[in-house]
Design a protein around this nucleic acid. Sequence first.
RNA 1: GUGGCUAUGGUGUAGUGGUAACACAGAGGCUUGUGGUGCCUUUAUCACGGGUUCAAUUCCCGUUAGCCACC
Length: 387
Amino acid sequence: MSFFEITHKDNTSLARTGIIHTDHGDIETPIFMPVGTQATVKGLNTNNLNSIGAQIILANTYHLHLRPGEDTINEFGGLHNFMKWDKPILTDSGGFQVFSLGKQKEKKEGTNAYPLVKIDDEGVTFRSHIDGSEHRFTPKSAIETQHKLGADIIMAFDECTPDEADSTYTKKAMERTHRWAKECLDTHKKNTKHHGYNQFLFGIIQGANHKNLREESAKIISSMDFDGIAIGGESVGYNMEATKNILDWVNPIIPEDKPHYTMGLGHSPKDLFDVVEKGIDIFDCVSPTRMARNGTLFVHKKISNTYRINITNAVHKRDKITIDPLLENSPVGHYSRAYLHHLFNTSELLAYSIASMHNLYFLLNLSKQIREAIKENRFQELKNEWI
RNA sequence: GUGGCUAUGGUGUAGUGGUAACACAGAGGCUUGUGGUGCCUUUAUCACGGGUUCAAUUCCCGUUAGCCACC
């Protein structure tokens, strides 16, 4: 049985359904992946995740390296046993967090805060955002750390350059990312079953918003023996016009028979259609859960004539209807807006759980609808209802 | 009853003879390979009445309210 299997192709676009086979179960694609950076999707336990239909969740190498440390998790036989989640997990390599730390440094410029991040050809030296202690990631160490963490899908260690970087630097960083990709692959091939089950490694295409660089990156990453292809970059998921252009550039080059992953995409339900249409199978985003924690909830447009509401708004103080009347099958579909408004107003912990479950269910349910639509050759029809 | 002190937005506090600053609360917006975080906008005829002054939230008098002390 191969790792990835395409089960149906749309007849009017590159959209497809598929199954990713892992030793912790199958993943039906296209699918949104909830983010659980520190081995927890904030506010939700694994029963909650099962109830909303989560098939795979993310965790983060950078955060788990700092706390509790990969060796602790290794002693538990990996993340699955540590957090008691027996379905698939994907870990990000930490490349993007390094990029984020670099961005923070820019913001604090002038306060003589010394750099949190230093990148060289062999790896990255950075300071912990928690206690300022110094750490270093190399392609080899990032993979070895991810082996110990034990996710089913692990990511190559890359450098995500800011969009505003000049093309000379972007090219240099991209070429370095390609060298690192090979080192990651070499390290991984020596030990693909650290905990006894298979771990699969994805490569990441960079090149910012330059067509020639994206094409070059797509060519090189595609030529390597990765199990899946990710598209990274600051614009991906953030600037949807740029994201669509990037996908158009790389699509003729990347292998069709490997899973395609847009990293950091899923801010708005509408965004799913834009990338699924261009052959993307998996995507993740912190935004739905972060927005949830701040009271912004997805709703069907036909209910409120908007695709999201802010439950903390005063109009919901006595609002009798449920969060989204079209989602009453959701595990949290029976709660009234007034109740959730009250929970936020009093900062009750349950507010974050209910809101997070709602937004995640919204996207997981939409992913399911998209899969069904593709199988029934009515993807465009469903898309038209949503845009 | 007498004396003293205080009165600034919903709350707690700044401040000035040229119509007010901050925090929280309130109202609204934002958050994109996650700090439950952070950011932005907005919200006051400075207790009431009178006086001095070109100009009073600021100085003076009175009223009212609160607090303290004494009888």
